[in-house]
Structure formats: C-alpha cells, structure tokens
Design a protein around this nucleic acid. Structure first.
Lengths: 325, 325
DNA sequence: CATGATAATCGAAACGTTACGATTTTCTTT
DNA sequence: AAAGAAAATCGTAACGTTTCGATTATCATG
C-alpha cells in the first residue's frame, strides 16, 4: 500500500506538506497541490485510517449492538442508522448478540478497543453496569431506559400506542378486549400493558384478569393463546406484537371465527407481513426509521459538539386495516 | 484511556514485557505475569486496536457490503456472517448501498482505508473494475459471478431451484405454467428463468412466451401481473420471488380464484411471511444462513491460510405448502 | 564455584498519520 | 531595494502497539 511518504517522495515535497494539502490544514501552493493530487491518483494512494485514528483519536466509526437482526424490527432501524452515519462520514460496526448479555458485554468491550467514537444500543443488550463502566463514551440507547445522565435515550411511545389501539377498539364498540402478551419482565413489554389498562380505566371498563394471557412472543404463542379462548371468546384481541397476532389470526381461521365480524384483532409493530394477511391486520406502527436516524444524529452530535444527552419519545401510529371493523 | 505504558509503570516492568505477557509471545515469570494481570484489571487497561493494527497490519475486521438491508433476504445472511466472524474474533463493518453502485464504490474504498482484512459482497453492489483494482485483498462474493480468479464465489443454485419447482408442478399435473419475473438484466434473475425453461423442455412442453411477464419485483408487480392474466388464466404461476407471489395471491383472492383448486402458485426465497399467507405459499428456499457462514469461513480462510479461492454452489430446497395441491 | 545454557526482561525502532514550531520562499509596501 | 508580513514548506515528535536483538538474572552441571 502506498503511504504518504511514497506520495511525498514522488511529488518531491515533504510528508507534512502532503498531509496539509490533502487535509487542507495549511495553505499549499496551487501547483504543488495539483502535483500531489496527480501523484495520489497515479500511485493509488489511500490514507490509512488506523494510523490517522491513532493520531487523532477518532476512528470515524460507530458501534451498533442489537439483540437479533432477524427480528423484523431491527433491519429497518439498523439501515436508518447506517445511512445516517454515512451521511456524516461514519462507518458502522454491527454486533448481533443473539440476545445474550454475555455476548453483549464482550461486543461492547471490543467496540471500545476498536476505538469507536460512540455506540448505539438497542434494547437491553448490555447490563447497566457495563455502560456505567464506560464513562465519557457517547452512547445512545434505543428502546430501553437506563437512566444514566450522560446516555441519551430514544423511545417509542409504546404506552401511547397501546392506548390508541384500545381507545379505538372501545370507540367502535368493543368491550371485552383481551390482551395477549409475552412475560412482562421487560420494560418494553410492560409499557404496552400500561396503555391497555389506562384506556380501559378512562372508559370505566373494569379490568378482567382472565383476559390477560402470557405466552411466548412468537407465532406459536399467539396461536395457542387464541385457541385457549375457545368457548369463552372475547370481543377483541390486542396483541403484544404482530407475529403473535398472526398466530391468533391463524387460530381463528381454524376455529371458524370470522375476523372482524366475530372478533377484532390488533397487533403491534407493523412488520411488513401484516398488510398481507387476510384480512390485513390493524396494528400500532413504530417509527423505526425515525428512531434509527434520530439515534444516530443524537450520537454524532454528542460526539462532535458535546451536545447534552437527551431523552426523546417518538409517537407511534395506529394503522387501521380490516381486522377491526 | 490506560495504555501499555501505564500498565508497565504500575507493574514496575517495561512496556515490552507487558506486551509479551499479554500476548504470550515470550516467556514471562509467573509472578510478574500475575502482577501485570492484576494491574490491568485495576486500571481497566484495554488494548488500542488501532495501534495494534497499525503495527501488525491486521484489523481483525471484515467489511460487508449489501444492497438493501430491508430486503428480507439479507438480514439472515448478514446475521450468519456476523456470528461466524465473531467466532473467529473478527468484527463486521456493515455497509448498505441502497442499491447504488456509486455508494458501493465509496463504501468499498472506505473499507480499504479502514484496513479491513477482507470483504464480503452480496449481489452486484460494486462494479467489476472496482474489485479488479483491489488486488491482493481477500474477497468473497455472494450471489454474483465476477469470474475473477482471486475472488471466491458463493452461489445458491437458483436454476436448480426453479427447476425443482417447475418439475414438481408438472409432476402433479400442471401444464400451462406462467412465470412472473422482474426484468431479466441481472444474472440472478435470469438463472431462475433458465431453470424454468429447462424443466419445460425436459417434459417436452412447448414454451409459450405469452406466459412470461415482467414487472417490478414487489407486491404491486405481482398483483398487477396476476390481474393481467384475467380471462386467460394459466394453470399455475411461478414467481421470481415471494413478495410478487404474495401480490399474485392477493389478486387471485380478489378475482375469486381459489388457490390451489383453480390455480397453483409457487414463490421463491422462503421469506418468513409466506408460511403465514392463506393458503401458505409453496416456495423455493435459499440456504441463507449457510451462505453467510460459508462465505465468512471462506473469507477468513483466505485471510489466514491463504487458501485458494473457491466457487461454491449451494443447493436450494423446494418447500411444498398448500398453494399447489 | 565458575560456566554455559536458558529464562526474563529491556530498549529502541517501526507502523502511517497529524500537528506544531521552525525555516524558507514569496509578496507587499515604502 | 530593504524590511516586514504572509505564504509555503519542512522536520520532528508524538499516538499505542509489536517485534527483535541485546542485556541481565537464574539455574543446573561438572
């Protein structure tokens, strides 16, 4: 690989002049500038960013740690991050932890060793003390609140989303509204439930614990849970996520339940798929793209201008399709 | 950040001893080794990988360039790459080109400047001469053949997949089999068509050009194309990808065409969604996970052992669901 | 206990940049 | 034409590692 030294020699100037010319950090005569560019092109010079980073203490790289790329929520967020980062001339190192906090820990450390300029975390990929131990490094967290003063947080208003959904269902006449969910150990799970409860309360509908069912947050979980309602059907089913809702849909179709005549279903996430089910699912859409790019902007601002960390909650959007009349 | 020098000072030894101890590149007395480890832990030393990379000319990082993360084919491949890379202690810089070869070009160069140890390209994200200009750098390409001797290629046997699908359709009695596709300018598009044609030929079914329709490779494209068959329905429709097949499915449902009684549909890719459509779609599954990890293994072998480049074709799998009787 | 072998440790150079003070060249102005 | 200012250019010291030849400490052996 050609180095600055090679360029300098070929152009008949010193290394520092070449550096200054290329970076515009000092005035350089037009003619030598041209000559240098010429030489660069001729010998295919490319700066070694490791060396530059060592000197400047910037790597122009950010790290992104996510739990599982194949979960349909993430690709869009990651893509938005990558694009926004590129806009600011940053690269993105992507780490997928497989939802294992141990892996999250080692990923986190590795990113630090690689001298990333900042890190975006999505969900609870690392434990709290891990972040705490990394003082000074700019960090933005998506969809999880650590309440650490120097860490920014980007959230979707899940509670508001759930509220909107239930509010809509009640508004068009449904009363016995079931909620199928995964175990509520995570904050992101619980916040939806809060919205559900609040909406019921606002309409003075009494809370019926038998309408709340926990299962695994996948197709199977939704399917089985729906089946378990057999003989004692609710009016409507609100689901923790779209995939469970799709499972429920399948179960209904097998049980001869007509959607939305016999029962309404509303999902959460707005993954691509659900506009293609029959009937298409109503759902609460998360602003995935916006979350990704806002997180990145926040991170980069914090890297460059040392802007203060901020906590943003982005609003969700209820998308009405044919699964609730 | 603590450096080797800090460790050395605190441990009362020289920098080179610390380095040797940590890397095991020279014998170190047990007691000093312990002392060094102790100090490292105490002051939270982490090696600076930029500095290491500058010296060793390895970055322990690979680059991955893909066209569009939101295309359902890629997340699974990327995930497999990331996991396999991690297994060998490599990190992954992910670049999404938005299907723009200009962006692909600048991504490629940036990766080289960041001194990645190798690059995985998926699809035609960069032009041929870009790769040609990067002599010596290990490169593996997924789903595109550049025919460059020092570049490895990992392909799915798309032609074989299409063949299997058509073969199956013919076997269960379908004869007038339409093929809906996107414009056949790319190799990966054309290879499927080849399989289609070959299967027809093997069964001596005459090729009917009116059954081949080109459209945009999305839901809309499949939908419209299906509608255009109105009044002159084929027996079966084979689709370039699952998303188009889903569009076709939707059109059929609107046109009152019962699947699979009136018409069979077979898609391509096996994206998650299609097992949830009604009826669930038969499709040709690509070994996404395998493609990603094999590509990574190939790349890393080529980085480490200077193994010869290889060209692998992985077989696809026909998945029979209810969209063809 | 001297001797050589082996084990530990060290110092300095190098990797390719950037940054800064010093030096040289060029241009203005009188 | 001399003096001073401004513009170009240069040399060198870092940045935090690894590597390697050189040096010193430790040990068994005769």
């Amino acid at each position: 690989m050609a180095t600055l030294k090679d360029v300098a020699k070929a152009a008949g100037v010193s290394v520092s002049t070449v550096s200054a010319a290329l970076n515009g950090t000092a005035p350089v005569k037009e003619s030598t500038y041209k000559k240098i560019l010429e030489v660069c092109k001729a010998i295919g010079y490319r700066p070694n960013r490791l060396a530059r980073g060592l000197k400047t203490k910037r790597s122009d790289t950010i790290g992104v740690i996510i739990p599982e790329l194949t979960n349909p929520f993430f690709p869009e967020v990651v893509r938005a991050i990558e694009h926004k980062a590129k806009e600011y001339n940053y690269n993105t190192i992507l780490c997928d932890t497989d939802d294992d906090p141990e892996i999250g820990l080692s990923d986190f450390h590795l990113l630090i060793e690689k001298q990333v300029d900042g890190i975006i975390l999505i969900g609870g990929v690392v434990k709290r003390d891990v972040i705490l131990s990394s003082k000074k490094l700019p960090i933005v967290v998506i969809e999880k609140e650590y309440h650490i003063p120097w860490v920014s947080t980007i959230m979707a208003d899940l509670m508001g989303g759930a509220y909107k959904a239930i509010n809509h269902l009640i508004g068009i006449g449904y009363r016995r509204i079931a909620y199928i969910t995964c175990i509520m150990e995570k904050d992101t799970v619980y916040r939806r439930f809060e919205g559900y409860k609040l909406a019921l309360k606002d309409y003075q509908i009494i809370f019926d614990a038998s309408l709340i069912k926990e299962a695994s947050p996948d197709f199977e979980g939704g399917y089985k849970t729906m089946k378990s309602f057999e003989g004692n059907l609710p009016d409507a089913v609100f689901s923790y996520n779209d995939v469970m809702a799709m499972g429920a849909l399948k179960a209904c179709s097998e049980m001869g339940i007509i959607i939305p005549q016999d029962l309404a279903i509303v999902g959460f996430d707005d993954i691509d798929t659900v506009s293609f089910t029959s009937p298409p699912l109503s759902t609460v859409a998360l602003p995935k793209q916006e979350m990704g790019s806002l997180a990145t902007e926040t991170l980069i601002n914090s890297i460059l201008n040392r802007e203060k960390p901020r906590n943003v909650s982005l609003s969700t959007k209820l998308i009405i399709r044919e699964s609730c009349k």
